[in-house]
């Protein structure tokens, strides 16, 4: 009986954690998926007010955005990535490819069908924290040789608490400021 209870408790833990994790990850770790050529990606909204209680308590002003840029052309392409129209300062961690910080681009071409993936990290600076909107810009992928825009998607970083007036909660927990 005690053993059965122990097994049941053990079994319930990952199932409960799975549901908790699924609810949290979309709210606290945004994903931006871009591809070229193709339609613009799904806009990304990070809402600090929608963070979970633990995150709000321990690391309320830090977050990360996972960005992937897929090369859907038939040939290898070098890709650059930048954030435009955003007052936040982002640290970049680029995976798998050598990142040339000055050019804001990878050194090696992304093969056809391949993906450039990177993390953007930021902390909302103190002077901005009282505001409802920290960023209303976009993530841009471009060709470093020509500057040609390959694709882009809107990026907003908001704080629902700071904006008491114009907001509504959607089913996914994200807060969209109008």
């Amino acid at each position: 009986m005690v053993t059965a209870l122990a097994v049941a408790i053990g079994f319930a833990l990952p199932v409960a954690a799975g549901h908790y994790g699924r609810g949290m990850s979309g709210r606290e770790a945004a994903k931006a998926s871009l591809a070229f050529p193709g339609p613009p990606g799904k806009p990304v909204t990070v809402d600090l007010a929608a963070f979970g209680g633990l995150k709000k308590t321990l690391q309320p002003w830090h977050f990360r955005i996972f960005v992937s840029v897929a090369n859907k052309t038939a040939g290898p392409r070098r890709v650059g990535v930048r954030v435009e129209g955003c007052a936040l300062f982002f640290d970049w961690v680029v995976r798998d490819y050598t990142w040339e910080a000055d050019a804001r681009a990878v050194a090696e071409p992304i093969p056809p069908g391949g993906k450039l993936t990177l993390y953007l990290f930021t902390e909302v600076p103190e002077e901005l924290r009282g505001q409802p909107i920290y960023c209303d810009g976009r993530i841009v992928a471009f060709a470093p040789e020509t500057g040609e825009l390959l694709t882009a998607l809107p990026l907003r970083v908001v704080n629902g608490i700071a904006d008491g007036a114009a907001h509504e909660h959607h089913h996914d927990g994200a807060l969209h400021v109008h």
């Binding site: 122990a6 097994v7 053990g10 990952p14 199932v15 799975g18």
Partner: peptide, 29 residues
């Protein structure tokens, strides 16, 4: 004091069955 084997195998069984619950915790935990 605790039947650690029972808890950990229960956990393992729950973990393995997560795909059937349409979820997963491999990466987030």
């Amino acid at each position: 004091k605790v039947d650690a084997g029972a808890v950990r195998y229960g956990f393992l069984a729950g973990y393995l069955s997560l795909p059937f619950f349409g979820t997963g915790i491999g990466c987030s935990f």
